[in-house]
């Protein structure tokens, strides 16, 4: 005998349960966790290098890549605890992988954990890693049309980092349109213009991170 059963449960219920546990651990330890999402080559690792050096904030990093440990190498060179996850074809990180990486991180001595997701504007935003904020990283050479093409990311982002702005004079990037499209998708999101290799925009970005950390620890 057949019957129809109503379920109404998230497709990713199991992974979301793991993300909730990660979120609970970070809350308990007073750690801010952010998830950097952007195309390959958007400048995520360079922004991260500029963010973690020359600061009194204590960081750990989780690197997600299809292959190699190149990004983790760059962070390790700055003496920051880092775990590299290689997905070997997976186009995004998931909470179960991040949970395993957490086992290798000194959680009692940290202010901020940064997850640098696999380079991809699509899939990473669909998977909750337990983070406090997703950060959209978009570089000038990618063009100004990305927000409307990838609305889910830009809508969900807690901040938008526009990188490589030193290239604006050389690339047909409509800055006004970009800012307008971002505002339509996410009316109050901070948009930070950066030249990470020169440290430009990093102070503003660190200010945002500090305010989120303070807000979190007040709770």
């Amino acid at each position: 005998m057949t019957k129809v059963v109503e379920i109404r449960e998230s497709v990713m219920a199991a992974d979301e349960a793991i993300a909730s546990r990660i979120r609970a651990i970070c809350s308990e330890k007073g750690i801010l966790m952010i998830n950097l999402i952007g195309s390959p080559g958007s400048g995520k690792t360079t922004v991260l290098e500029a963010t973690v050096r020359n600061t009194d904030l204590r960081y750990a990093v989780i690197e997600g890549d299809v292959a190699t440990t190149r990004d983790a190498d760059r962070i390790a060179a700055l003496n920051i605890p880092v775990v590299q996850i290689n997905t070997h074809g997976g186009c995004h990180l998931e909470a179960n992988l991040v949970a395993r990486a957490f086992e290798e991180i000194p959680l009692d001595e940290l202010d901020i954990i940064v997850v640098e997701n696999v380079g991809n504007l699509v899939c990473p935003v669909e998977f909750d890693l337990g983070e406090d904020r997703k950060i959209a990283v978009n570089s000038v050479p990618e063009g100004s049309d990305k927000p409307l093409k990838y609305p889910h990311l830009f809508h969900k982002a807690g901040a938008v980092l526009l990188t490589k702005t030193d290239l604006l004079p050389y690339i047909a990037f409509d800055l006004e349109l970009f800012e307008k499209d971002v505002k339509n998708l996410n009316p109050h999101v901070p948009l930070v213009k950066m030249v990470a290799t020169e440290g430009k925009g990093i102070e503003e970005w660190e200010g945002i991170l500090r305010s989120w950390l303070e807000e979190k620890r007040k709770k």
Binding site: A13, T69, A72, I75, A76, V82, H88, G89, G90, E94
Partner: peptide, 29 residues
Amino acid sequence: YLYSCAWIDQKDPAVGGTLMHEMSLVEAI
């Protein structure tokens, strides 16, 4: 891996290293 980092190598595609996220979703379903 190095003195200050560790490495997770997720070699088995059946446990999540998938080529497109629809497959990840199907596995979860």
